[in-house]
Simulated assay, not measured.
Amino acid sequence: MYWLQVYGYYEPVPASSNNDDVKLTLLVDEESESILYQNFRAIDSESSPIRYRACFETSMSAALLTETYVMLEKAEPRNAPGWFDCFDAKEIGAALEAEEAIAFLGQKDVHYGIDRIVVILPDGRGFAWNEINECGEIAFDGKHLPEHCPPRPIE
């Protein structure tokens, strides 16, 4: 069972050929767009939409990023399997706590009720993971959705 949880369910995510693996949400229209990045590594699992983890590097400045994209006040990185060594949730969390790293909304509803969070450190290293959003929490609990939430997709 341990092997399945730590290794078995994860698959590597190959970098896309059209360079749209790392996206941030624009302030002006809340649409997501690709940013400049290199050295992309990611893992994901079909068993859960919140198992996605990614690491990358960007040469974009903090000033440009913060003036262009939606920042988040709070972000808590999820742990990654130990063998995915580029993603250290403790280091990312400490950098966020110390206000050294900047958290952004990567993509809203990358899956229904799931947002992609992106954090960038001062040295250009970046990290991404998926989080359940407010509407997802309500929907997954089986509660009635408020008007501001999109309807659940028909399965």
Score class of each variant (00 low, 15 high):
Val70Glu: 13
Tyr52Asn: 06
Gln107Glu: 10
Ala95Thr: 03
Leu105Ala: 07
Lys108Thr: 03
Ala128Ser: 14
Ala128Asp: 03
Cys135Met: 07
Asp141Met: 13
Tyr112Val: 12
Arg51His: 13
Trp129Val: 04
Ala75Gly: 06
Asp88Gln: 14
Gly136Asn: 07
Asp88Gly: 08
Phe84Glu: 00
Lys74Glu: 06
Ile43Cys: 03
Gly106Pro: 07
Cys135Pro: 02
Tyr69Ile: 09
Asp123Cys: 03
Val70Ala: 08
Ser47Tyr: 11
Arg51Ala: 12
Tyr52Val: 11
Thr66Gly: 01
Pro122Glu: 05
Val70Lys: 15
Ile114Trp: 03
Cys149Phe: 01
Leu65His: 04
Cys86Val: 12
Cys55Gln: 13
Asp123Glu: 07
Ala128Arg: 04
Glu46Leu: 11
Gly136Met: 04
Gln107His: 02
Phe56Asp: 02
Tyr69Gly: 02
Ala63Asn: 10
Met71Lys: 15
Phe127Leu: 02
Ala89Phe: 00
Ala89Arg: 03
Ala103Leu: 02
Arg125Thr: 06
Ser48Phe: 08
Ala62Arg: 15
Glu137Phe: 01
Val118Leu: 05
Ala128Gln: 06
Glu67Thr: 15
Asn130Ser: 12
Lys108Trp: 00
Trp129Asp: 00
Lys74Ala: 08
Ala89Glu: 04
Leu96Asp: 03
His144Met: 12
Phe104Ile: 05
Met71Val: 14
Cys149Ile: 08
Ser48Tyr: 10
Glu46Arg: 15
Ser45Leu: 11
Gly126Lys: 04
Asp141Glu: 14
Val70Tyr: 06
Arg78His: 13
Asp109Ala: 10
Val118Asn: 02
Asp85Cys: 02
Ala54Ser: 14
Glu100His: 12
